[in-house]
Structures are given as C-alpha cells and as structure tokens.
Design a protein around this nucleic acid. Sequence first.
DNA 1: GTCTGTGAAGGGCTTCACAGCT
DNA 2: AGCTGTGAAGCCCTTCACAGAC
Lengths: 255, 255
Amino acid sequence: MSRGVSRAAPSASRRGTPSAAQHRDIPQATVTRLATYLRVLGVLADEGAIIVSSEELAAASGVGSAKLRKDLSFLGPNGVRGVGYDVTRLRARIESALGLDRGHRVVLVGVGNLGRALAGYGGFDRRGFSMVGLFDCDPALVGADIGGMTVRDVAELADACRELDATIGVIATPDTAAQDVCDQLVGAGLRCILSFSPLTLEIPDHVEMRRVDLAMEMQVLSFNLARNEEQSPQQVSAASVAVGASTRNGSVIRP
Amino acid sequence: MSRGVSRAAPSASRRGTPSAAQHRDIPQATVTRLATYLRVLGVLADEGAIIVSSEELAAASGVGSAKLRKDLSFLGPNGVRGVGYDVTRLRARIESALGLDRGHRVVLVGVGNLGRALAGYGGFDRRGFSMVGLFDCDPALVGADIGGMTVRDVAELADACRELDATIGVIATPDTAAQDVCDQLVGAGLRCILSFSPLTLEIPDHVEMRRVDLAMEMQVLSFNLARNEEQSPQQVSAASVAVGASTRNGSVIRP
DNA sequence: GTCTGTGAAGGGCTTCACAGCT
DNA sequence: AGCTGTGAAGCCCTTCACAGAC
C-alpha cells in the first residue's frame, strides 16, 4: 500500500496537544463500525427517535452491545447512565470524529456503468460528501450530462482538482488507466483516494487509499461457504433455520 | 449479522476428519489476503512468470513478506526453500483453498447502473464465477438483453435460483427492495449473499453474507485523512514525498 | 433498578528471528 | 548462500463483568 521504503514507521503514538486526542487513539476496527452506527442513527432519527440504548443501537447495527459501548467510549462520554444516548447528539459526535463535518468534495474519474452508479448514488450527499466533478477520457462522453453534472475531459483533471478544491478522488476507470489516473490525483495534491480497480496502485506514504475489489468479496464469500459446509456437512441444521425475533423497531423512545 | 438468538456459539474448533483440516483453521484476515495473492499471481502468470519469491509476491501485493509466508503456511508447504513458489502450483492451491474450483454460479438482482456494472465486469469469469441470471422488477427492463443475458422478472427469482443451481446471490437493488430480495434468495436455498445495500439485512445463521457499503468506505477514508493530518499538521513532509523504487517487474523468473 | 463507561482477562493476528531444507 | 516454514513474543481487539451515575 506504500510505495518503496520499508513500511512507514508505526511509531508516532504520543499525542501532540492534550486538547485534541480525538483521532489518534481510535482503533481502525472501531472507525469502520462508527460509520455503521452513523448510518443506523440516521435511520433512527428519520423515524423520529430521540433516545436510544446501546442494546438497541447495537442490535440494529449487527454487533454486540458491549462492543458498541466500548467503541463509543473512545469518543469520550456520550450517553447518560440509566437512560441511553441522545440520537442527535451522538450523530453529531460521530460525524465530527470521522471528519465528516468538513464537507468533503469528491471528484470521480471514469463514468462507465460503475461511475454512473456512483454519481447517481444519493447516499453521498446525505452523508456529508458532495460530488463536484466527473471525468472521462472517452470523447463520446465528455460534455455529456450525468445527474446534473457535465463530464469533463480527464486531461483537465489535475487543474480541476485544485480549482474545485477537491479532497477525495474516486477511481472507477478500467484497470489499464487506474495507475495513471491515480498519479494525476496525487500530483494534484489529493490525499484521499477510493479505488475500484483490483490492482495494487502505488502511492506515496502520505496518501490514504482504500480499495473495493468486487471479485475479491465474492472469493471471500466462497471460502466462508466452504467453511460453513464443513461445520454442518450435508444439510442445514433445523436449529439454525429457526430465526429469532427481528430487532427492527425495538423500543426506541419517540416524541 | 445474524437474526435473533444470541450470537452463534463460536465453539466448534475441533477438526472433524484429520484429512481435510483445509478450511477451518485459516484466519479470516488471511482469507482476505489469499484472494489478493491470487489476483497478483494471475498477473504474474500472464507475464510468463514461473517462480516467484515471497519477497516479490508480498511487495506486489502490498504486504510484508513474513506475513505472506505465514498466510501461505496455513495451506501447508507450498514452496521450495532456497528457491521460491511455483506460480502455477500456488495459484491452484489457493483456488482450491478458497473453494473457487467448484464453479460458482451467480444470480444478480437489480440491473440499474450498479447491476449493469457488475454484469459487465469481466473479472468474475476470469476468477471462477459465472453469471447465470439477471433479475429486476421494472417491466421496462424485464426482457432486455444485458451483456448477452436476458433480464428476468424478479417474481421468478426463487424458482430460477433452484433451476439454475445458483450458489451466490448478489443484491444490487434500491434499499427498499433489499430485505425482500434477500428473503427470497434465502428461501430459495442460497447460502451466500453479497449485498450493496447499506442496510443491515437480516438472515438466518447458516447464510453467509458480505456487504459492500460505498458511502462507508468514504467515511473511513475521511477519518484516516484527519488522522494523518494530525500526524503531519500543515504540510506534507518532504520525506514522505520521496518515493522509493517501484516493485513492478521485480526479478521474477521467466521461461 | 437501569444503563453507561471501563479495567482486566482472553483470543486472534502480526511481527520477529531463526531453524531447516535445497 | 538463499529462501521457506514456524515457534515465540508482542500487539491489537474483543469479551466479560462490574463499578458508577442517574
């Protein structure tokens, strides 16, 4: 994930100012789940919930309640003992911790089917991201209007990133173009890249990159199936078919 | 991730027959990386590589060499000391371990932009999956031809799954339809589901599910950016910009 | 009594360093 | 001499159980 120079030193664990020990000490695994809690809280808020307990929020998020409380405790005290968490307050707290209150501006490169799916995905705006630029190298697509935005030529990419003040770049191009696009995004000063190419793209250490590899997800799924079948060899055991009560709409407090 | 009944007991750790201790004891984290190694080995094979060392394969995969060797050791001895790994043999070994040699048959529900991107994604066939059915509920889409396949009505889903002998179901529908489609897939006997809905879908314990949440990936990215900026406050340090030598095309042995 | 926040115990994964084979 | 395979040490994360606030 880092180009050259043996693994970026994992040192750096002493806090700079005692004021903002916000980000550093949160485990990576917790960060991933915070994003989940945030989404669930959004649903609860839409339903009009005001207070939610760790048990309820955990169930709706698919984790254990102890884990959830531990996760939230990294952000400092958030709830009221004997009562629960204030939905609105907790949401704001997590958003702030994840850095979503800074209004990220996203550029997307590659408007094939995947790119179009991303461009049209309403979930981004709702979660603090705004799509500010679409790019492609296909002359037939440049100038086209997709979801209210005009597709620009990828040749303008680097300049446009600066001009648009983009903070996140998304690569949804064919594999052959991925590294080149990546280099351009990095060259333009972007430090956050989300790639849908299965290739291991090379980036300098200061750039943060996440990769979503669709085929890989299926492969992991395939393995887990094999593992499960080993456990319960032939047939699905009757016990595991009997499902418990759904946790949808628990006893969340409403106005 | 499991519906009802407090967490499936994590017991079950004794091996059944000593013959096939293949699947059980492989750590989840290792499984994820095996999928990565497999892809990289594919590239190496295409380039004509015959033997590869742990150092080279690790670098191309973006992990440390010790970790790679440890990962591979879970599959038994695979290499030759003092030499390296036989590319073809190792590939076959990993494919077998991941259960990819059983020829998974995939049905895809929801052929919007995302669904189309998945249907047209060449990477699946190349990695042991074949798309056998496309479904949608939109009458305007049913009957349409996408990538050589005819879109069928989602009403036929359950029957078609059995008839097509599908082993993996992919949900690429809007959120509102996700749980319903999921229930149908489970009802038809599928035990492997890949969902692109951010919702926490409810499934019985014997079904394996993976979720890809695009907005969540961006949120995690956002946090990591914030963390990095705390480390090197204002400007990118000059040291981290200096990138080392690329590891592309190392000294892999060719014919 | 109820539900949060947290120290402590436990388990799993990573890293190290080297024994062992070619 | 070179590279794999692996015990052992260390670290991170999860889980448990309960103290503490309301």
